[in-house]
């Protein structure tokens, strides 16, 4: 049994992340207070769903591609977390929620999340199975379907969290056209500019992963947020020191990272 070449540093960073999470959790349990940066996009859910409830129009939720593989899986899971939050709010406010799926793998999971959220909110009878819809795995077919849903149902709020490709702009612009307030988040750097340009609130990169911790404030989740923040400081430090050393002709830090 041995380690794969080039993965020693990965393992060390992972172990350090676990330790930092543990330390952050302990700190939160001890002090009961760890300062967390405000995320405007997450605070805006109240406004968006409240507005939809007042207008008597539905909220639309999309996970984007909804894939489970290595590159996209974490973003899909972040989307699940946001879906649960959205479904709980719509259930409690008595607002209609429409979920459209592009991925047949994610579809049964979203059905279960929404159904369970309505049960948790004490309103199982308000759950409408037909409002959690699988449209198509083909990108353009999915977009056509969602555009149709947005136009016909006149949605008042549009929430998009997950991994998005080119559908991001088409969905965001259509929702804007029907006058919906929009909250969108992805870690796909190529689509973030589209969301920033077209949506009212944007969750950028790591913010989508921090959502459940931000909203629930459970000790281990807060510990993860602390580890994320320290991880960023460490990464920035390594980049800075590594750049200076490499420029000065001592590239040992960059060579060590490749081990």
């Amino acid at each position: 049994m041995s380690l794969y070449a080039g993965r020693m540093t990965h393992l060390l960073f992972f172990a350090a992340f676990v330790l930092l999470t543990w330390a952050g959790t302990r700190r939160f349990q001890r002090t009961g207070n760890v300062p967390i940066r405000r995320v405007t996009g997450l605070d805006a859910f109240e406004e968006a769903i409240g507005r939809a409830t007042e207008l008597g129009r539905p909220v639309h939720f999309s996970l984007g591609r909804g894939l489970f593989d290595a590159e996209h899986g974490a973003q899909t899971f972040a989307g699940f977390s946001m879906l649960k939050h959205t479904a709980l709010m719509t259930a409690r406010y008595g607002c209609r929620l429409i979920v459209t799926n592009q991925s047949p793998q994610a579809h049964p999971v979203t059905e279960e999340i929404v159904r369970q959220a309505y049960v948790e909110a004490g309103r199982p009878d308000d759950y409408v199975a037909d409002d959690v819809r699988y449209l198509s795995e083909q990108q353009t077919a999915y977009v056509s379907g969602v555009i149709g849903v947005m136009e016909r149902e006149r949605i008042a709020a549009n929430v998009m969290v997950g991994y998005f490709y080119a559908e991001s702009m088409m969905l965001a612009e259509t929702a804007n056209k029907v006058g919906a307030i929009q909250i969108a988040g992805t870690a796909n750097t190529h689509q973030i500019p589209f969301f920033v340009a077209a949506c009212d609130y944007t969750l950028i990169g790591e913010e989508i992963f921090a959502a459940s911790a931000y909203l629930e404030r459970q000790p281990v989740q807060i510990g993860c947020l602390v580890a994320q923040d320290y991880g960023k400081y460490v990464a920035a430090g390594i980049i800075l020191v590594g750049s200076i050393l490499a420029t000065a002709g001592y590239p040992f830090l960059s060579q060590w990272i490749k081990k």
Partner: peptide
Amino acid sequence: LGAIGLSLR
């Protein structure tokens, strides 16, 4: 980093 945190959870 966020993805690692979420995966861990």
